[in-house]
């Protein structure tokens, strides 16, 4: 009986070790991406099979876009706050409020234009086939699904 226990203990210990080895091996790419300075860019470069030069170009494009985009977001947030305040104060749609609404809509349109321009630039910085794949994927993720006419194209945001 002692021999059976020794063999089973040894087998289970080795099984646990091989499980750990297999898990670490399979998780290695994800771990590398999560440890990168910008994990989502590390993911992008792996997913769309880019070389170092392309990654550097896309990183520069991404950083420039994110800076510009966050400025626009701040503008939009402050305009929204001002609009809320005005509506609460007046209780009706005044010409000034209408002007504010138009400005916000225009800002959103600008944001969208800049976003699509960024997608085009990124896709051009990728290898041609990967660029086409990227563009198709990113448009599916960002254009509302009712416009693309397909339920499968609805963006799936991770919790």
């Amino acid at each position: 009986m002692k021999r059976v226990l020794v063999i089973l203990t040894l087998g289970l210990t080795l099984a646990a070790a091989s499980y750990t080895g297999g898990f670490c091996f399979a998780m290695a790419p994800a771990r590398a991406e999560l440890c990168a300075p910008v994990p989502e860019l590390a993911w992008l470069s792996r997913e769309f099979k880019m070389d170092d030069e392309q990654v550097a170009r896309i990183r520069a494009l991404h950083e420039a876009y994110v800076t510009e985009s966050s400025q626009r977001c701040r503008q939009s947030t402050s305009k929204n706050a001002a609009l809320r305040e005005q509506i609460a104060k007046t209780g009706e749609i005044t010409p000034e409020i209408e002007k504010g609404m138009n400005e916000i809509a225009q800002l959103r349109a600008e944001c969208q234009k800049a976003m699509f321009r960024h997608f085009m630039a990124v896709s051009r910085a990728m290898p041609p086939e990967q660029g086409r794949r990227y563009l198709s994927w990113v448009l599916q993720q960002t254009i509302p699904c009712q416009l693309t006419g397909s339920n499968a194209a609805c963006p799936v945001m991770m919790k």
């Binding site: 999560l34 993911w43 985009s69 966050s70 977001c73 947030t77 993720q141 960002t142 945001m157």
Partner: peptide, 18 residues
Amino acid sequence: QALLAGRYVQTVASYQSL
């Protein structure tokens, strides 16, 4: 992978969440 893809989309389309 799905998490990072979602984060990428949220970063580039941040105005959509405003």
